[in-house]
């Protein structure tokens, strides 16, 4: 597992494209939307939290959609299977490395987005916390979709269609948590529910993805 994780991190660091494309998508999405809102401060502040969450959601769905593709095409995935490496380990390493390589840069870019939308510092920290608590759920469901679609060509939007229903509660609780952060602090019900969703998503999606990848091999 640590061997796999080290490999994934090394690959991530050597291919800046992997995290840079997600980061650029995130910032471009927010910029275009801000332009669309005419840059009016009132509208921007209202739209900031949903906009940043939508950007985060699409960003993670798109970056995790093809996470198994390269290893399957090159044959690395089969070789790992033949070396008695379990799919649970493969999936876990992908999730942890994906969090570090692609998600952390986006979390760190949230303040930049917040400045575009003229948010106060407390709102920015609320958004960063919500993203930190909710990202594991987004990643887990995206990885699950990727494992179901592994090895198929031209999946397009199917991954997004599969995962979107599961992601709706995540967005609802994230935005509720952001709203009540100012009055109720970090352990408000929204954030607690969000953390719960993330834990559940990981607990379900890691074994489910491992099983989905196994059917790919058969």
């Amino acid at each position: 597992m640590t061997v796999l994780l080290r490999r994934e991190l090394k690959i991530g660091l050597r291919n800046p494209r992997i995290w840079l494309s997600g980061l650029l998508f995130f910032l471009l999405f927010l910029t275009v939307l801000a332009i669309g809102l005419n840059g009016e401060a009132e509208k921007l502040q209202v739209m900031a939290a949903p906009a940043i969450w939508l950007a985060l959601l699409f960003c993670l769905l798109l970056t995790f959609e093809n996470i198994f593709e390269a290893d399957i095409r090159s044959g690395v995935f089969e070789q790992l299977h033949l070396s008695n490496v379990s799919n649970i380990e493969v999936v876990s390493a992908k999730i942890i490395s994906g969090f570090i390589v692609t998600t952390l840069p986006i979390l760190l870019a949230i303040p930049v987005g917040g400045i575009f939308y003229q948010l106060p510092a407390s709102a920015i920290s609320a958004l960063m916390l919500s993203a930190l608590f909710g990202a594991p759920a987004l990643i887990a469901y995206s990885v699950f979709a990727a494992s179901i679609l592994a090895g198929q060509r031209q999946t397009g939007f199917i991954g997004i269609l599969i995962t979107l229903p599961f992601l709706i509660p995540v967005i609802i609780f994230a935005l509720a948590g952001v709203e009540s952060y100012a009055t109720e602090g970090i352990w408000n019900p929204g954030f607690r529910a969000l953390l719960g969703l993330s834990m559940t998503a990981l607990a379900i999606c890691i074994p489910a993805s491992a099983a989905a990848l196994k059917t790919y091999l058969d």
Binding site: K10, N15, R73, S74, G75, V76, E78, L82, N84
Partner: peptide, 19 residues
């Protein structure tokens, strides 16, 4: 079991381009 006996070389070389 197969895992302890088999080494397989398929069409792909299973190499990571950035390594």
């Amino acid at each position: 079991d197969a895992g302890s006996l088999i080494a397989y070389q398929g069409h792909g070389n299973a190499l990571e381009p950035s390594m």
